[in-house]
């Protein structure tokens, strides 16, 4: 993917840049709002990562608003030290697609960037069937089959699996699952998400000889075919 990173802190920028490049992405960088806006307008990117607070009068939200006014729909992830829910809402209202607060784990940022990049490409045609290896999901009939065998899932389990399948091959974090599958925006003290994933595994993976859902240490989960 082609990614633009606008971040003024040198250490954070170098850290994110290195991680994204190691993951095989092409990344442009800018350390102030003016350069960032110029690049965002003149070049074409798959995902923009914008820091909210930037020096030089143009902050991340201003860049975002300018782009949206010009009908530029490139997915935008806002980075911010403002953890307040109101700030998050303001960022999303301005046209942001996701919001990560500092300090963040790189795995969290990476997972969200990949999810955004994927969305930019795949949401053109609404899908009614999802398939990964021998797993099939019928979104209309709400049925799941693996190797031709029907699997009974609770509605929430279905949504969880659907989210994993839609992001097959990508790491999804626990926070992402809590936000997207349950629509909760808090940090649970206990391992609520792990327990739900483990239940899903019991139904989707346990009866079969190879597993689709894998745990990624310090990051989250991935559903992949290998």
């Amino acid at each position: 993917m082609r990614i633009l990173l606008v971040e003024d802190d040198v250490t954070v920028r170098a850290f994110v840049l290195k991680g994204l490049r190691e993951a095989g992405h092409v990344v442009d960088e800018a350390d102030n709002g003016k350069d960032g806006l110029f690049l965002a307008v003149s070049e074409s990117y798959d995902v923009l990562i914008l820091d909210r607070m930037l020096p030089g009068g143009i902050d991340g939200v201003r860049i975002l608003e300018t782009l949206r006014v010009q009908n530029n729909a490139t997915p935008v992830l806002l980075l911010s030290a403002l953890a307040d829910v109101d700030d998050r809402v303001a960022g999303l209202k301005a046209g942001g697609d996701d919001y990560v607060t500092k300090p963040f784990a790189f795995s969290e940022l990476m997972a969200r960037v990949e999810a955004l990049g994927r969305r930019g490409r795949s949401e053109v045609v609404p899908q009614t069937r999802l398939t990964v290896a021998d797993l099939e999901m019928d979104l209309l009939a709400r049925t799941v089959k693996r190797g031709g065998e029907k699997i009974d899932l609770q509605p929430r389990e279905f949504r969880l699996l659907e989210f994993l399948v839609r992001h097959a091959g990508q790491v999804v974090t626990r926070t992402m699952l809590l936000e997207r599958v349950w629509d909760y925006h808090f940090d649970p003290q206990t391992n609520v998400i792990d327990v739900h994933v483990s239940r899903l595994r019991q139904k989707v993976d346990k009866p079969f000889d190879h597993a689709l859902i894998h745990t990624i240490r310090n990051a989250g989960y991935i559903l992949r075919a290998d």
């Binding site: 829910v85 109101d86 809402v89 349950w182 909760y184 206990t190 391992n191 609520v192 327990v195 239940r199």
Partner: peptide
Amino acid sequence: TRRAAFTDLEVPPLLEGLAELYEASAEE
């Protein structure tokens, strides 16, 4: 000062959602 997000809420769905989320942890 954080009353911007206040709306009229039905309590039962809110509790059912949480119970559903935590039911698995409890069972664990």
